[in-house]
Amino acid sequence: MINNKLSDSQLISDYIKGNEYCLEILIKRHKQKLYNFIYSKIQDRDLTEDVFQDTFIKVIRTLKLGNYNEEGKFVSWVMRIAHNLVIDHFRKNKRLQKFQSSENFDIFSVLRDNTLGAEDTLIKNQIDNDVRDLIELLPNDQKEVLIYRFYNDLSFKEISYKTGVSINTSLGRMRYALINLRSIISKKNISLTK
């Protein structure tokens, strides 16, 4: 049994020589100070746990690889590692927008499932068909502009080129097409929503 009163530097030296128990003493000796330090910066128990673990993984690897230079207190070195990991965490978090659920904010109000269910798909298809039928009722010049714009995704410049009229005329035809559609929908009392 190793004396718990051994200095950090003696424990490190013995650990490097292969005495694994020394690491346990070192971790247990400094765990609370380190954990409090990390928690004071992050304020989140789970993340603190992660950073604490990553800190000691770095410590273990450095010691085992023989890259540790004893130039000061062991605990200061460990705290410096933890501090750098905390900075990494905040840098990463800055890049990734974070949402946290609370009483006033529910994450599921932001996340939406955009895939439609069977019923919604049926309704959507029905609405699409109704709209197509309504478009058929429009005068040809208006119908043409509307189809080019909404179904073929052409710009008004492209539409004017294809139809041989000016951009302003195309815009005017589109305006009348929409006014007429609204008027037909209203007259026929058609509902195009769920």
């Binding site: 690491l23 346990e24 971790i27 247990k28 928690y39 746990e49 604490f52 673990q53 000691f56 993984i57």
Partner: peptide, 14 residues
């Protein structure tokens, strides 16, 4: 505020 014992055990085993 202390690390979980699982974390300590993980580090020792690691």
């Amino acid at each position: 505020l202390q690390p979980k014992s699982e974390t300590i055990n993980f580090l020792i085993n690691y």
